[in-house]
Amino acid sequence: MEFRDLKTQYQELKIEIDQAVSNVMQSAHFIGGPQVKQLEKELADFVGVKHCITCANGTEALSLVLMAWDVKEGDAVFVPDFTFFASGEVVSFNGATPVFVDVDTDTFNIDTIKLEQAVEKVLKEGKLTPKVVVPVDLFGLPADYTAIQKIADKYNLLVLEDSAQGFGGAINGQRAGSFGDAATTSFFPAKPLGCYGDGGAIFTNNDQLASLLESLKVHGKGEDKYDNVRIGVNSRLDTIQAAILLVKLKAFANYELDAVNKVYEQYTTALKGLVPTPVIPEGFYSSFAQYTIKLESKQQRDDLQSYLKDQGIPTMIYYIKPMHKQGAFNDLIFNEEDFTVTNKLSDTVLSLPMHPYLRTEEIKEVTNAIKQFMKKEVTV
């Protein structure tokens, strides 16, 4: 059993993917080929925004936006504590200070009440200027952008949606990647829409921002790459990856999103009353980058993971160390009482196999194994 079955996906799309890659090889247009612009148009249309700017990876997508917004030393950027390191790393990389915020116990996304409290605290201390909030669409579920935008408007914050895991998700029909002032995603292979290497993209409706990002991602180019009008970086999506993504985007939109949500329904029905399962608020739609359950304790979580491994069932733990406990942020001062939910989640969550090609019999194998484990727990 595969945790994220990219092998089966490739076999399903093999003819189209092989042809798409072959076309690039024959054209020898490996950087900036026509497939890149075609992909950007199709991604923008899918998300429902004016501009899509592809780049080398999801981390640089975040960093490029912060660069374009001139986020720098003295600025505070608010980031959920329960997420992948990159969401906070890019803040420090651009010279600003990440301010970590606890998350909601049900959705795993940034707690908007605690977000406002964190902004107020920064303002009261007077050492930093609140500049940006970076909500993360964790495990495929969009954050609560209605509440987040109200806070952003109140405190004059920019909103950068980190939809690395959330691509394909939606709120009342509005796609992830279209919220806030700009949004980013990642095409890392295991993401909802992944390529066969690294890749990322930025989404925005702001014409000026889009133009600036196009410059920043290619050495600060002006009229061409030899006319450098600002300091930038080298962050381009390869043509081969764009060609692969064009094929995979079609499958993603046509049936993969529906398929993962059917897997979610089967898992949730089978596990009802057994363990806490993912909560999808009314009007929200998840792309299920992960299907994550919660256990009662770290011991129980670790024991279940070990038990499932013995049954040949792969699982993953996201995220075993909260952001505020990462060694790279040792210079920052934190109060552990501000992160009670994140600390508990890091000890109790477990992600099960989840992908569009997961068969019903495999789902039954996973859920039956969990049932057997829980029965053993009761009898011990």
Rank of each mutant, 00 (worst) to 15 (best):
158 L>C: 04
174 Q>L: 11
170 A>I: 09
168 G>S: 07
176 A>W: 04
151 I>R: 03
168 G>I: 06
158 L>F: 14
157 L>C: 06
163 S>E: 07
160 L>Y: 04
130 P>I: 07
134 V>N: 00
146 T>I: 14
142 P>S: 13
159 V>A: 03
163 S>A: 15
171 I>Q: 02
155 Y>L: 08
155 Y>S: 01
159 V>E: 03
133 V>H: 08
147 A>N: 14
175 R>P: 00
151 I>E: 04
156 N>F: 07
134 V>P: 00
159 V>F: 07
165 Q>W: 10
145 Y>M: 11
156 N>L: 11
139 F>Y: 14
133 V>K: 03
161 E>F: 03
159 V>P: 00
132 V>Y: 08
133 V>L: 10
170 A>L: 08
164 A>G: 15
173 G>S: 10
162 D>A: 10
149 Q>K: 14
159 V>W: 07
148 I>Q: 02
136 V>M: 02
144 D>K: 09
169 G>E: 06
168 G>L: 03
164 A>E: 13
167 F>V: 08
142 P>G: 13
172 N>D: 15
136 V>H: 06
138 L>K: 05
153 D>I: 05
135 P>V: 12
150 K>M: 13
136 V>P: 00
164 A>N: 06
136 V>R: 00
172 N>T: 10
145 Y>G: 01
167 F>D: 04
164 A>H: 03
145 Y>H: 15
139 F>T: 11
143 A>C: 11
141 L>G: 02
142 P>C: 09
170 A>Q: 12
132 V>I: 12
174 Q>I: 14
167 F>I: 15
173 G>F: 08
148 I>N: 03
173 G>I: 11
167 F>P: 01
138 L>G: 01
